[in-house]
Amino acid sequence: MDPKQKALEAQFQARIDADEKIEPKDWMPDAYRKTLIRQISQHAHSEVVGMLPEGNWVTRAPSLRRKVALLAKIQDEAGHGLYLYGAAETLGIDRETLLEELHAGAAKYSSIFNYPSLSWADMGAIGWLVDGAAIMNQVMLTRTSYGPYARAMVRICKEESFHQRQGYEILLTLCRGTEAQKQMAQDSLNRWWWPALMMFGPSDGASTHTEQSMRWRIKRKTNDELRQQFIDATVPQADYLGLTVPDPALKWNDERDHYDFGEIDWAEFWNVVKGNGPCNRERLQARVKAHEQGAWVREAAMAYAEKRQQRQEERNINPRGLKNLAG
């Protein structure tokens, strides 16, 4: 590495170590920029793909109040997608390119959304567990080193914690309802618990990005730390609901002051990451279809904007419409 480059990197790391925020116009190593683009775009894609399993129930919400709340939640997620694509754009990449990568299967999104939403209780479990797990990660990211990402997270976190409470409240209502409703809630927890734990990513030993991301303070906690934090916070909530967490090895450990828990099925995790989850194909196809079927709308909007501008210019040049006389 040439000495000038080395000096820049040292200076950059010194700013990180001093907890300064890095802003779009600041110098940054290419690898830092790339890591952020990858992470922020994955995050943005997750918000947008994440609309699908919930959209799947918006037309079947069991009361008008629930329908409104679910619609508003999904709308928030679309909004989060927008902020995050905006944050990625500050790093010099446009939304269109990021979407192309998603549609080509080259960009990832959170694997949790490759699981199906099968009952109304899943709207509760997704809010409680999936948003709950996301919050653990996102609260940490409000202190991430890249300024626009950190600021996007502050806004997002406020809304996410509202979503989590809303999800929990859906399950609470079911658990205080009839036996059939409680069963629906338990079935949902059974299906979402392990995938929610997988949301934190591979364990620290197997995570390729963690070490460097920690040094750059993009991440401030490891996958395993966040996962443990999530489990510790969530198990008492499951108890309060009267539901059973589907892990026979789950047990409070006084010495560690944490819950011990069973081994995650990493074969399943990698299999879904590779594209073999129950809904990987469907989710991607739904996004591609929406994009392709929307192409004529986007083209028309652009064509109209151009026409309008052209007409405006013509009026400015020739306010009395003399152009008509000329031909």
């Binding site: 947008v48 609309m51 699908l52 919930e54 959209g55 918006v58 037309t59 329908k67 409104v68 619609l71 508003a72 999904i74 709308q75 679309a78 909004g79 997608g81 927008l82 694509y85 739904a286 279809k289 929406a290 994009h291 079927q293 929307g294 192409a295 709308v297 986007r298 909007a301």
Partner: peptide
């Protein structure tokens, strides 16, 4: 609300959801 998540542009997805709401 049937459009939710399937709109032609993310901004229009939001706008249609707004009207639905």
């Amino acid at each position: 609300s049937e459009w939710c998540g399937h709109g032609p542009i993310l901004e229009q997805d939001i706008a249609m959801t707004n009207i639905a709401l």
